[in-house]
Computed example of a mutant assay.
Amino acid sequence: MPAKYSQPYQPLLLRILHGLTGLFVIAAILTAFWTYNTYDGRWGKIPLPQFKTIEGIHGTFGLFALLTFPLFVLYAFHRGQKRLIHPDSLMKLTQTGKPIWWYNLHRLTNTLAILALTFALFSGKMIDEKWLPMGELNHSWYYAHLISWVIMVICIALHLLMSARVGGLSLLQSILDWRFRSQDSPARWSKHISDWWYSFRLASVKTWWQSASTLRVLEVFVLVSIAAAWIISLLKELL
């Protein structure tokens, strides 16, 4: 329901996309460890039940994350681009200890989390679901996927720490608050989308590419990686 705010406010669509993607990613991380624990365990394991179907469950959560992630990416690199790195972010990181340093470190961790998830999802699509049940544990893509989830855990921890450092508990609570402002109503989403698409069509490719070029390169890289993951996975099924 529409409401007034005295604390940090997060757009409703951001909260939905961030929440769904985060939920699927956390579930994928937990089931990824359970899968490793069941079929591998070379670098340590804990006494979890030997649940042979856990790999399929992990793959399902990974698929859900892969489906919601492109929408989150489009939002993050356009309406949410102020939360990502800026062209001068690296320069401002030299101002150690100052508020601007913490804000830019927060933007950097947000951007790294997106790239880490891209790596995790892409490497996951490169894995054959028959490898682990057959004991084939030495494939390079399997190792890459294991590394990607370790990086993802680190990025999530940094994301939460930086969010708490920059905005405190109120910022973390604002992500879980389902109240929204009138201009953020779902009834207006179709108009917002049509307005964005109209402005995107009016802008030339050259203008689009020159504006915030670092973010444009990252956006294209992430979206192309997601598309490539689907295409390569489909080709592997057909061949």
Score class of each variant (00 low, 15 high):
L93I: 10
L93Q: 10
R188M: 13
L105V: 08
Y36W: 10
T53F: 15
P133G: 09
H139D: 02
F221K: 14
W43H: 04
A229F: 09
W209E: 04
H145W: 03
P70M: 06
G22M: 02
I151H: 05
L132N: 02
T21H: 05
V153G: 01
Y75N: 04
W131T: 05
W101T: 04
A164I: 09
Y198Q: 15
W34R: 03
G97S: 07
I156W: 01
G62V: 00
L132G: 01
V205R: 15
S194Y: 12
T207I: 14
I26D: 06
I16L: 06
A65Q: 00
Y9H: 02
A229I: 05
T94M: 12
A157Q: 12
A203F: 09
A212V: 12
Q10P: 05
W209P: 01
G135S: 08
T118E: 11
L93P: 05
S89T: 06
D128A: 10
L158A: 12
H58F: 11
K92A: 09
V73M: 04
K98C: 04
N110Y: 14
P47V: 02
W141S: 06
H58K: 11
E136W: 13
I114R: 02
H58Y: 11
A27T: 00
W208Y: 13
F33P: 00
M126Y: 02
P8E: 00
Y36T: 10
W230C: 10
A203W: 09
M134Q: 10
F200T: 14
T21P: 07
H18Q: 15
I100N: 05
Y9G: 00
Y39K: 03
I57N: 10
A32E: 10
L23V: 08
V220L: 13
S190L: 10
S185F: 01
L171A: 01
L169F: 15
L48P: 09
S89L: 03
W189I: 08
T214K: 14
